[in-house]
């Protein structure tokens, strides 16, 4: 493999071990695009997409992928919470801190702050960043991109991923510690790609995201595809209409649970729902009855759906792009 593995940080563990954080760089030209993944130790889709990208970019740089040439650089950070991945913990296992809320970090600070500082330092030359994430552990997500509203970004760049939705969303006080927010502040547009759920691999979604990233690489001049060259992977029928849509906070309908109970879904992710269409039922697991029917308050594309069935009143059940 022609990737240049680089240790961006080595942490001395309390009992004489070292934990290394790796990045892999392909190519030597400009611009540089970064891929980050694995801030959460219970997310595997990003690892799988990194695996596919590293495999393909190795072929390209070794001249084994006819018709493809790497013009710029791709820097990949596949697993940014290695201890969490090993221990199956979402956050940094020692103190349960969220690495992706520890930015910009402190190079001599607590471990999560050191990780954040090392990642940010390692991204100093990148021109854009793609952060691979799943939904939270309660949701599965139709592959989509999240961008902060405030970032000026040509729509074509975001749409070149060939994903159905680009959500320009509000930032929140909590998210000011995220990598995306901090890179955006430094003028580096960051595409947060959400797809699938935690604790599993969603192969179809991973395939779409992988192809979408290659398409973005071509569109942004990092990767060159000679005319007549086929796609990196066999083209399949897109499962959603393209081009995708840019949506704003006003276009996102949150469906909240009216009651506590157990959620049983009736609709599937990616469905276009009419107003009043059934999304699922809330049932009483101990009493045996149905508590409520959950339906679409307005027409829209079902792009986030509850995967964890346990509901309290006010729990988020679904998001629709209206």
């Amino acid at each position: 493999m022609s990737a240049r593995p680089e240790t961006i940080l080595s942490i001395e563990l309390p009992f004489n071990e070292n934990l290394a954080f790796y990045a892999f760089t392909f190519g030597a030209g400009d611009p540089e695009v970064a891929i980050t993944s694995g801030f959460y130790g219970d997310e595997y889709n990003g690892l799988y997409v990194c695996h596919k990208l590293i495999g393909f970019l190795s072929e390209v740089t070794e001249g084994r992928a006819a018709g493809w040439r790497l013009k710029g650089r791709v820097k990949i950070f596949p697993a940014l919470n290695p201890l969490g991945t090993m221990a199956h913990r979402r956050y940094w296992p020692f103190d349960q801190r969220d690495i992706n809320l520890s930015f910009p970090g402190v190079s001599m600070g607590e471990t999560t702050e050191r990780i954040a500082a090392a990642v940010l330092a390692s991204l100093r030359d990148c021109r854009s960043c793609i952060d691979l994430c799943c939904g939270s552990r309660f949701f599965e997500e139709l592959p989509h991109i999240r961008l902060y509203e405030s970032i000026a970004m040509p729509d074509e760049s975001a749409l070149s991923f060939n994903l159905p939705i680009v959500w320009r969303r509000h930032s929140t006080p909590l998210l000011t510690g995220s990598l995306a927010h901090n890179l955006n502040l430094r003028g580096v547009p960051t595409f947060v790609l959400k797809f699938g759920g935690t604790d599993r691999i969603d192969p179809l979604f991973c395939e779409r995201v992988y192809e979408g990233i290659l398409n973005y690489f071509v569109a942004s001049g990092v990767l060159e595809k000679r005319a007549g060259t086929g796609p990196a992977a066999p083209a399949a029928e897109s499962p959603w209409p393209l081009p995708g849509r840019i949506i704003w906070p006003k276009d996102v309908l949150s469906v909240l649970s009216p009651a506590a109970g157990l959620f049983v879904a009736a609709a599937a992710l990616g469905c276009r729902l009419e107003r009043g269409a059934l999304i699922g039922h809330i049932v009483d697991p101990v009493g045996g009855g149905r508590i409520a029917e959950v339906s679409a308050p307005a027409p829209g594309l079902l792009f986030s759906l509850r995967s964890n069935p346990v509901l309290y009143a006010g729990s988020l059940i679904a998001r629709l792009a209206g």
Binding site: H170, T172, Y312, A313, G314, S315
Partner: peptide, 23 residues
Amino acid sequence: RCFPGTNGTAADPPPQGEGASHV
């Protein structure tokens, strides 16, 4: 990190997360 919280209706969705802690 959930204050001022929400009232649990669609007009006031949680800014992030699952929802119940914000309610």
